[in-house]
Amino acid sequence: MTDTALAGTRKSPGDKARARTRRTIPTVRHLARRFGELVVVLLLASFLTFSFASLLPGDPTIAILGPERPPEEYAALRQEMGLDEPFLLRYVTWLWDALHGDLGRTPIPPGGDVMDRILTALPVSAELAFLAVLLAVVIAIPVALFCASHPGGRVDRMLTATVFGVISVPSFLLGLLIIMLLVNQTGLFPRNGWQRLGDAGLAQNLYYAFLPALTLALNEAAIYSRLLRNDLVATLREDFILAAKAKGMPRARVLLREALRPSSLGMVTIAGVSLGRLLGGTVIVETLFGLPGLGSLIVKAASDGDVILMQGAVLVIAFGYVAVNALVDISYTWLDPRIRRERA
C-alpha cells in the first residue's frame, strides 16, 4: 500500500471540515443566486399584476361612487386616489408601500385595509393548499410504488383507469360526492365552515379542513401517482437498481431507498406548481364548503370591480407561487446531488 493512501486515513482534523465546506459552499452560492432570480421574478409579477389591474376596463371611481354622479366628484376622487399620476410613478408608489406591508385601503364595501383582509383569507387558502398537496403526496407514493413494482399488472392497469377517471371528474362533482358519502351518509365530518387554527386548536381545525383538502387532493393525487409511477418504472430499469438487487437489498428497500428519491423530481416539481396554483385557485371548493379563502376574496373583488383589493391579492399569490417554486428548486439539490454541482 502506498504512503499517500495510508496518509488519507489518518484522522487529520482538517480533512472532515474541508469535506464539509466543499459540500456547503456550492449550496450557499446556489441559494444566493436563486434569491436574486426570485427578486427579479417578483418584480415582473408585481408589475404585470399592477398593469393588468390598471388596464382593466371600467373606472374604479365609478365602481366606488356609483354611476350618474357629477363629474367633479369623480375627478376629486381620482385626485385623491392618485389615479392622475403617471402610470410608472403609481406603480413604484404602490410597490414601495407593498414592500412595507401596506397594500392600501379599499373604499368598496366591506372596505377596510387590503392587507388585513388578505391576511384573514390567506391562512385558510394556504392551509388548504398545503394539506391538499400533502395528502396527495401521501396517497400517490404508495400507489406509485405498488404500480411501478408490478408494471402492467392487474392493479397497475386498474389504477391507471381510476386515475384517468378521477382526473376527468371536475372538483365540484368530486366535492359533492365526498359530501354525500362522508357527510350526509355517515355524518363523520361537518358539512361546511372553518375553524381557525389559532382559535379552535389543531384537532378542530383539521376536522373542518379535511374534507375540502381531500376534495382538492384527489385530483392532484391522481396526477402525482401517474407521474411518479412512470418515473419509477424508468428508474427501476437502471443498472444501479440491478446492482442494488445483486448486493442483496430486499425489494422494498430497493424501492424505497434506491429508486424513490431519484424518481421523485417530476412529482415534486408538479406538487410545487399545484401548491402555488391552489393558493388562489380553490374558489370552487371554498364555495362548496363555505370557506373564507383567498379564492373567494378574489372572485368577490373581481365582481365588485375592486381593483385595489384584487391587485393586492394577486401580488400575494404571485409571491406565494414564486416562494414555493424556490423551495422546490432547493429541494432538487437534496433529491439529486448532481444538480448542486451543475448549477453552482
Binding site: D239, F240, L242, A246
Partner: peptide
C-alpha cells in the same frame, strides 16, 4: 435468499457510470 446475493455471491458490473446510485 435474503443473504445469498451480496454475502455469498457478488457482482461487479460493466459500467461504473451507471451501476452506482447517483443520489447516494
Amino acid at each position: 435468499r435474503r443473504h445469498f446475493w451480496g454475502r455469498d455471491i457478488a457482482m461487479v458490473f460493466q459500467n461504473p457510470m451507471t451501476s452506482l446510485n447517483p443520489v447516494k
